[in-house]
Design a binder for these strands. Structure first.
Lengths: 231, 231
DNA sequence: AGTCAATGACTTGCATACAAGAAATTTAAT
DNA sequence: ATTAAATTTCTTGTATGCAAGTCATTGACT
């Protein structure tokens, strides 16, 4: 499965995506095909492919004959994704609580233990954030997997680039948020095992929405990263 | 808003997509860049752009240095989409039943009336199918719209090409299926207006899954259109 | 100085030539 | 006849040149 085939195009796609999600390429910044091609010593063609792909994911905005720009963070889109995630996650996890058997406990416990250790470590905050977010994604993937709904979360991940970027933005804030996330994970798993659906619903709603509420002050510090809200 | 900008690429994309969804380009068939470019009197570049886009939607399979093929209908993917749709649709529509006010009734009634007239008309079956499916999509869009969740259904539609193709496949079967669909629509709207959530859930599940159950015999007539199921 | 048209420096869209890989076909040797 | 290597012919991937659109700058004219 080494799939050498479109190494150049895929490579620049992944590098760009990582830089955009980590905000190293900040929202609103201009980025040109030629410039990028020269940077990676390739031609415009694979760069164009990567650009188009990133545009479809909502991470780039290509304005023909004008330029290409890192898209602003669209809080409405983030809110939509959160709604979709909340609904699907509750449905899948309440299914899981019905069919749950002890054999899957190990994998979850392992991830939770890993997160605990992360929080106790003394990494620099931005490195910790990335590692914790990765582990968070692993946690949710493991849950969907256990429920036999692997494709559902793959589908969600294919659509939540905007949300990912938003998360890396707010998690730069502090370690307390990550601590809260971890505690939520414990509660979620508890309510699945104990089949407490009301508690589960409560957890999921808070888990996802907490960030967006607590962050309005952070957002106002770099308003140029965000699209205007006209709800 | 005339947006002339990428007319060539977008044009061939839409033409190809329509042909694929209508099964005029049958699953498994080979389709090459050069051949397509010559057919539309354009160069390979915009064709390639369209191909990549269709590949992302799961409608094409590009095998580098070998060829490009119309993807087979993946029943597992269809099933996944149906699950996602069912969960989201129930959530959105039960929200709608809470906030529903009479002012939105007109638009829905108009669409339902239109569907009734379609069924009473004497169009050829394949033309009727297309028209009815379009109207079906309008119906669901109007519902999501009324619930203030326009983006959620846009998101769903961006991901359900496989399902669309499957539907055009099974609806070639007969007019009775369309009649059933119409009756389901009536029931769905009734249960929203009367706030009968249990009936609503029942309708949605049946509405979406009915097709896939009733069609196993049709599928076996052209098994080469479908991927092998190894569940 | 102010106004407006021409120009030049960018951008991305499109066309085309070539490179590289895969598979069928041919050709030569046994 | 069989087998295997060479070749031919497909395919898509990549590089590059040109076309066309947008915007800022420049410069002539009033």
């Amino acid at each position: 499965m080494s799939q050498k085939h479109t190494a150049t195009s895929d490579g620049v796609y992944e590098k760009l995506k990582e830089q955009i999600l980590h905000l190293e390429l900040p929202p609103g910044a201009a980025i040109s095909e030629i410039e990028t091609a020269e940077k990676y010593n390739i031609s415009r063609t694979p760069v164009r492919d990567a650009f188009k792909r990133l545009e479809r994911e909502g991470l780039l905005e290509i304005r023909p004959h004008i330029g290409t720009f890192i898209s602003l963070i669209d809080l409405n889109a983030v809110s939509d994704i959160l709604y979709i995630r909340e609904v699907l996650e509750y449905s899948v996890l309440s299914d899981l609580s019905q069919i749950y058997d002890k054999s899957q406990d190990l994998r979850i416990q392992l991830i939770l233990q890993q997160q605990k250790e992360l929080l106790e470590s003394d990494m620099p905050i931005d490195e910790l954030s990335r590692a914790f977010i990765n582990s968070d994604n692993e946690f949710h993937t493991a849950l969907f997997d256990a429920a036999g709904k692997r494709n559902v979360i793959k589908f969600l991940y294919s659509y939540n680039s905007q949300y990912e970027r938003f998360r890396t933005f707010i998690n730069f804030n502090g370690k307390e948020d990550l601590q809260k996330l971890y505690e939520c994970h414990l509660k979620i798993w508890d309510s699945i095992v104990s089949k407490d659906l009301a508690a589960l619903k409560d957890c999921i709603n808070h888990h996802l929405y907490d960030g967006i509420n607590a962050s309005s002050d952070i957002i106002s510090k770099t308003p140029e990263y965000f699209t205007k809200i006209h709800s």
